[in-house]
Design a protein around this nucleic acid. Structure first.
Lengths: 145, 145
DNA sequence: TATTGTTATACTCTATAACTATA
DNA sequence: TATAGTTATAGAGTATAACAATA
């Protein structure tokens, strides 16, 4: 069928571009930069307020153990802090430190994120719109796998 | 600026969706399945004919060493074979074996690729078109990082 | 028993560095 | 010297399994 042939083309094109994207993003990682999962976790804490590691893991759709690795790194750099939940001894509540908040704000306000920079510099508003609309489709595709 | 604020939104949405996509695709990997890089290398050999590891690496935009790992796995499963280039003793030429070709054809013809399947099943032609058009934009974004 | 979190371990995909063989 | 390929090693970003503490 034509639909299936087309689906195969789309799959190939999308996969190739995404693989390249992920590789490049990782390569552009400078020493001391936030990695992407770190940056994402920090954003979630900023937008969602203090929360447990498990809650964060759910937002990111990864296992709590995986989130643990990211959080350990953020904590080691003093960007987040963990304190026990007074109401439930099993729980740990994570929050941004002042340093973490400042870093996040600086990155956002100065628009220094590699990705944001590249998008703002090399793409037209119409192209940005296309990409913005593609994102939920990619997410739906991921969910339907 | 509005453009920059928008760029930041696009960056976040795109990054989140792509990270999810890559994770899911890896998780859906069954034992004995081709991994994505393997499948991609096989496709390139099918479409481009026999070629050297370095040529393949260039097509995939990864280092020859990284390609080596993928090729070792494909060779171990008898899907590609390597023979010396008679004209240049340094070179090795890779080609699909009958088994490799058959596997590739079966996957393509039976449309069993997870991604193709999901796209054909859950997306409208208009959405497929959107995704197809987004692919080169993502690639350009990757290149401009 | 169920939940929260942590520790230990391993896998995929990729990179850099260093080497061998051939040109 | 330069190029093609291989081997060794490492790192990011995940996963699963097993465990401890608390509810």
């Amino acid at each position: 069928m034509d639909q299936d042939a087309h689906a195969n083309d789309v799959a190939r094109a999308l996969y190739a571009s995404i693989r390249l994207f992920v590789r490049r993003l990782r390569q552009r990682q400078a020493d001391g930069d936030l990695t992407m999962p770190e940056s994402s976790a920090l954003s979630h804490l900023d937008r969602g307020g203090p929360m447990t590691p498990t809650a964060l893991a759910k937002l990111e759709q990864i296992t709590p153990q995986s989130m643990g690795a990211t959080l350990a790194s953020l904590e080691a750099r003093g960007l987040v802090e963990r304190r026990p939940d007074p109401e439930d001894g099993r729980r740990v509540v994570l929050s941004l430190t002042d340093t973490g908040l400042e870093l996040l704000r600086n990155r956002r306000d100065a628009k220094t994120g590699e990705l944001t920079q590249a998008l703002a510099t090399h793409f037209t508003p119409a192209e940005l719109k296309q990409l913005l609309e593609a994102a939920p489709l990619i997410e739906r595709l991921a969910q339907s796998l």
